[in-house]
Nucleic acid binder design. Sequence first.
DNA 1: CTGCCGGATGAATCACAAC
DNA 2: GGTTGTGATTCATCCGGCA
Lengths: 289, 289
Amino acid sequence: MLIDRPEKESYTCREVLNKVLLGDALTVLRKLPEESVDMVFMDPPYFLQLPPKELRRWTVRTVVEGVNDDWDQFGSFEEYDEFIKNILLAIRRVMKPNATLWVIATYHSIFRIGKIMQDLGYWILNDVHWVKTNPMPNWLGVRFTNATETLIWAVKDKKAKKYTFNKEFAKEFGIGKIGANVWVLPICSGRERLKGEDGKKLHSTQKPVELLRRVILTSTQEGDTILDPVAGVGTTGYVAQALNRNFIMIEINPKYVKGIEKRFEEPLKLKAISSKDKKKVAEYVTVEE
Amino acid sequence: MLIDRPEKESYTCREVLNKVLLGDALTVLRKLPEESVDMVFMDPPYFLQLPPKELRRWTVRTVVEGVNDDWDQFGSFEEYDEFIKNILLAIRRVMKPNATLWVIATYHSIFRIGKIMQDLGYWILNDVHWVKTNPMPNWLGVRFTNATETLIWAVKDKKAKKYTFNKEFAKEFGIGKIGANVWVLPICSGRERLKGEDGKKLHSTQKPVELLRRVILTSTQEGDTILDPVAGVGTTGYVAQALNRNFIMIEINPKYVKGIEKRFEEPLKLKAISSKDKKKVAEYVTVEE
DNA sequence: CTGCCGGATGAATCACAAC
DNA sequence: GGTTGTGATTCATCCGGCA
């Protein structure tokens, strides 16, 4: 069975391998054996601005002179930080000593996440920048078009050395010929995008298969175990399976889990990025004369 | 006089306009009038935490002149955070209500800086990614080649609305045709790179003129006042002057200040990026068929 | 003046084994 | 644990020397 709802106190690796565990990330993570996974990919919820009324004031406010009282968003920042910190701690426990962790987010939250990671002892190896060829057309002329998401790639500890890095793939994916930390690829759309029964997109931030293909190929070996504690519609496991890696996915929303189940009925056949798509990418990033 | 050593308790804007103030950033910032500058560009120490040993090129046996300057040394993350927080607070005081702030750093510290900015109430407008066409390669192939630096662009407060954003320039500089938050340009080298009397680079991390040109053209108007509290060899003011903006620069190191003085003897004549360079950039980011 | 070639170098958290 | 010596292996770009 692909789907499982963990009831026991703790699980062996074998019991949860290649399963989607229905439940809260933190609760389920704590049931997994320690030092058991080779790589973790996390796509945490984005930080959403709540209406000011629901927010508390930030206690550190008193540090600053001459500041008006509208610093209300910090109450929710604190809650967000707490959530991130706890899940990063729980992840750290299940990572093998030389496992690596990927986290993806936008500027709304990536800075908070990165600092928390460093404070917990994670050692950042790279930031990788996903440049979207077809970002949301949010051009109001008041900001730069936000065409990027940032991935942080890290090890548990500064001392971790023998992590997996397949540089041939890194060179293939990064722009230029030097394996740079910049990936240019389109967002998930078209047939790849999962739809609900209402015909609308099932998940608001479904990650493209190609993104996970790159993550997995550069940082794991065949047979490795990949964990995604906030699986959403399960792109991580879906691509992992196609690349002969094992996966453990955790997702709390039954709607998404149902989506994963349906998705897995038709296993992914991976093909390299089409030359047509490559051409599009090339056109996109080319600077005009 | 271009150079000035502030002795008084406080200064009017007129007294410090288009001057390099020799002194500690925090001390001098507190002497400036509040709400007096339109834009701030800050290039703080990145706290690279480079290993104490030297890195030697294998083929030519030469040593990489890393960033081992005293100004990049901090005892701990906490110490670094305190430094950043205090300077960000002092900057906030002198910013006009609709002024904007740019901060640049690499993955070593940009996440910490971004979180501290958010915690202090700064409202992030964008992250802008500088993709370097000619970075140091990662020789051992154990990571992605770190080819980027990240700029955070922010206003003092979420409520600030009427900040300057020249969208024509944003469209010109960003890759694609959408004004994306990605700038591709080479690092500062060759004749542009200031040399000391020993023939070696005067500053380990001099920023390219083209980077500042983009920052200034997108986020200020002619006649605006631009502050750089950690001026180094003064690229910010040098480009500001060429673009008919006013500047206030602060720098504590007399060696760098002397470098600025000499640099200003020959005012910058700005030329647009050449079509040859544009072509190179295009080649660099183009994806192969 | 131009073109070719060798040398130098860049914000780098870059390895590993032996003592 | 720290220190030191050996060795495996990157690329775009600029500059100066020389043909």
